Amino acid sequence: MNLALFDLDHTLLPIDSDYEWGQFLCRVGAVDAAEFARRNDAFFAQYQAATLDPVEYLEFALGTLAAFEPERLAALQQQFMTEVIEPAIRPAARALLQKHLDAGDLVAIVTATNHFVTAPIAKAFGIEHLIAAMPEIVDGRITGRLHGTPTQGQGKIAHTKAWLEGMGKTLEHFDAVYFYSDSHNDLPLLSIVTHPVATNPNAALTTHATAQGWPLLHLFND
Rank of each mutant, 00 (worst) to 15 (best):
M1E: 12
N2S: 09
N2D: 14
N2Y: 00
N2W: 00
L3M: 10
L3G: 11
A4W: 01
L5M: 09
L8I: 12
T11P: 14
T11M: 11
T11F: 12
T11K: 08
L12M: 09
P14C: 12
I15V: 15
S17A: 14
D18M: 01
D18V: 01
D18N: 14
D18L: 05
D18T: 02
D18Q: 04
E20P: 05
W21Y: 11
Q23L: 13
F24T: 02
R27T: 00
R27N: 12
R27A: 09
G29V: 01
V31I: 09
D32T: 02
E35D: 05
E35M: 10
F36P: 08
A37N: 14
R38T: 06
R39N: 08
N40L: 07
D41A: 14
F43G: 06
F43A: 07
F44C: 05
A45Q: 10
Q46R: 07
Q46P: 04
Y47N: 11
Q48G: 15
T51S: 00
D53E: 02
Y57C: 07
Y57N: 02
E59W: 07
F60L: 07
T64L: 03
A67K: 12
E71V: 11
R72H: 09
A74C: 15
A75R: 15
L76H: 07
Q78N: 15
F80M: 07
M81L: 15
E86I: 02
I89F: 02
P91S: 04
A93Y: 05
A93R: 06
A95H: 12
L96A: 01
L97G: 12
D102S: 13
A103N: 09
D105P: 12
T111F: 01
A112I: 03
A112H: 03
V117K: 01
V117I: 14
T118E: 08
P120R: 04
K123V: 12
E128N: 14
E128D: 13
H129M: 05
L130M: 14
I131Y: 04
A132G: 03
A132K: 08
A133E: 06
M134T: 13
M134W: 00
M134F: 00
P135L: 03
E136V: 05
E136M: 09
E136D: 09
V138P: 13
I142C: 07
G144R: 07
R145G: 01
L146D: 04
H147M: 14
G148D: 15
T149W: 12
T151M: 01
G153P: 01
I157D: 05
I157V: 13
I157A: 10
A158N: 07
K161W: 07
K161Y: 03
A162W: 15
W163D: 05
L164I: 03
L164F: 06
M167N: 09
G168P: 15
T170A: 09
L171C: 09
H173L: 08
F174L: 05
A176G: 05
Y178M: 02
Y178T: 02
Y178F: 14
Y178R: 03
Y180D: 02
D182Y: 00
H184R: 13
D186S: 08
D186T: 02
L187I: 11
L189H: 07
L190T: 13
S191C: 10
I192N: 02
I192E: 11
P196I: 14
A198G: 14
P201E: 00
A203E: 04
T206I: 00
T206Q: 10
T206N: 11
T206V: 03
T206L: 02
H208G: 03
A209S: 12
T210E: 12
A211N: 02
G213I: 01
P215M: 00
L217V: 04
